[in-house]
């Protein structure tokens, strides 16, 4: 399946799927999208107390089984990515 998802990156189908997963998760949990955005930004605030992170390339998403998955690249002190 990897070969398929690889090809589909940035295509509209994967965008449809991500948007649906996000909206359905927030509907199921009774969490409005703003709250999820708040969780995301507070999460980043906590992490940046200890390390510098690459806020441009971080990715926080909801997986189909309802987990919050974060991929937060850490920056070196000089600003170079590890």
């Amino acid at each position: 399946m990897g070969f398929l998802f690889g090809k589909r990156k940035n295509k509209s189908a994967s965008s449809a799927k991500n948007r649906l997963q996000f909206v359905l998760y927030s509907e199921h949990q009774g969490l409005p999208p703003e709250t999820l955005e708040k969780i995301k930004s507070e999460f980043i605030t906590v992490i940046t107390k200890y390390v510098d992170v690459d806020t441009e390339n971080l990715d926080v998403k909801i997986t189909p089984d309802g987990a919050i998955q974060a991929n937060i690249p850490i920056l070196e002190k000089k600003g170079r990515r590890v």
Partner: peptide
């Protein structure tokens, strides 16, 4: 054809959701 181009969700995508 659209699924192949990545412009339509596949049945698998729908099932994941």
């Amino acid at each position: 054809d659209m699924v192949k181009r990545g412009e339509m969700m596949s049945a698998e995508d729908v099932l994941d959701v």
